[in-house]
C-alpha cells in the first residue's frame, strides 16, 4: 500500500514529535541525575579508598563496582558501599577505625581489580597513599599530656619513618620530656593502623584525605636557608661580616656553631682569676 506524499509527511511529523518528546524526557532525567551526582559525590572523610585507588574523580570513572578487591582482601578491610551509604553506591572503601589496611606485601586488592581503578602501577605497598594520618586532637592525645602511650607510633608499619616521636620540654612539670608523635607525609601510607589502635574512645590521630590533612605552601614561597644552601651563598646581598667586639682569636659562626675560638690552644686571653679582668677595666 503506497502512501501519498501527505501521509508520509504526517507520519514523519508524528515521528519527529514523538522522538523529540522521548529525547527531552531522557535529557530531563539526565539532568536530574547529574544534579543528584553533584550532591552525593565527594567521599566522607572517614571513608578511605583501597591502596592504589586513582584520584577520586578518575576512580569513579574506572571502578565498575564489582567487589573483586573486597573479595581478595584477606583482612575483610574493604567493603562495598550499599545504597543509602554516604559513599558512592557500590564502590569499595574502608573505615580505618573499624578495620585498617594491613598493607599486604602482595597487595591482593590491586591484583584483583580488573579495571585499573586500583592502579596496577602500585607494586610496593609502601608507595600507597590512601590518606594521611594527622594527630588532630592535641588536647587529649596522651603523649601530648606528657604520658607515654606511644601506641600509634608502635603499631605503624613504617615506624620511625611515617611516625616519629619528637622530644620537647614539658613546660608543665618543668623537668620532663614530651614525646610528640609527628607524622611524615613522605612515608605515611594512610593505612589507618594508628587510628585503629589509638586507645582513646575517639581517636586523637586520624587518617584523612591528604587534601584535608595537609596544608600547602604558597607556590612562590622559598625557604631562605634552603635557597642559600643551594646557591652556596646568600642570594640577596653578600653576607656582611658581622663585627662584634670579640676578643682576639675569636669569631662568630652564624649557622649555629656560635662562638669559635681560632687556633684553640687551650689558652684564653683571660687570666684564670676573674678579678684580674675586673681590675683591668679599672686601670684603663
Amino acid at each position: 500500500m503506497a502512501k501519498t506524499g501527505n501521509e508520509v509527511d504526517q507520519y514523519r511529523r508524528r515521528f519527529l514529535i514523538r522522538s523529540a518528546g522521548q529525547a527531552c524526557g531522557a535529557a530531563l532525567l539526565g539532568i536530574g541525575l547529574l544534579t543528584l551526582a553533584r550532591q552525593t559525590y565527594g567521599l566522607p572523610a572517614e571513608a578511605i579508598r583501597p591502596p592504589g585507588a586513582l584520584a577520586e574523580t578518575d576512580f569513579l570513572a574506572a571502578c565498575v563496582r564489582c567487589g573483586l578487591c573486597v573479595r581478595d582482601c584477606p583482612y575483610n578491610t574493604l567493603k562495598l558501599s550499599e545504597l543509602g551509604d554516604k559513599v558512592t553506591t557500590g564502590t569499595p572503601y574502608f573505615i580505618a577505625r573499624d578495620i585498617p589496611c594491613e598493607m599486604c606485601d602482595d597487595i591482593p586488592c590491586v591484583v584483583a581489580c580488573p579495571t585499573g581503578a586500583l592502579d596496577k602501577k602500585l607494586t610496593d605497598i609502601d608507595d600507597a597513599r590512601m590518606g594521611l594520618a594527622a594527630l588532630v586532637d592535641q588536647e587529649n592525645c596522651l603523649n601530648f599530656l606528657g604520658l607515654r602511650c606511644d601506641i600509634c607510633y608502635r603499631v605503624c608499619p613504617a615506624i620511625d619513618k611515617a611516625i616519629t616521636l619528637d622530644t620537647i620540654h614539658n613546660p608543665r612539670t618543668g623537668k620532663h620530656t614530651l614525646f610528640i608523635p609527628v607524622v611524615h607525609s613522605e612515608a605515611c601510607t594512610g593505612c589507618g593502623k594508628c587510628e585503629h589502635a589509638c586507645i582513646l574512645p575517639e581517636a586523637a590521630i586520624k587518617v584523612l584525605p591528604a587534601r584535608l590533612a595537609k596544608g600547602a605552601p604558597g607556590q612562590h614561597y622559598r625557604l631562605g636557608w634552603e635557597e642559600k644552601q643551594k646557591a652556596g651563598s646568600s642570594l640577596v646581598a653578600p653576607d656582611k661580616e658581622h663585627k662584634y667586639n670579640l676578643p682576639e682569636g675569636y669569631r662568630y659562626e652564624y649557622e649555629g656553631q656560635g662562638l669559635i675560638k681560632e687556633n684553640d690552644s687551650g689558652e684564653t686571653p683571660f687570666s684564670s682569676n676573674p678579678l684580674d679582668t675586673l681590675n683591668q677595666g679599672r686601670q684603663q
Partner: peptide, 15 residues
C-alpha cells in the same frame, strides 16, 4: 546514560 557518563566523568547510571 552514556552522555551523562561523559559529562560527569563517572559511571553515573550505576548510581
Amino acid at each position: 546514560t552514556l552522555i551523562t557518563a561523559s559529562i560527569s566523568g563517572s559511571l553515573l547510571w550505576e548510581m
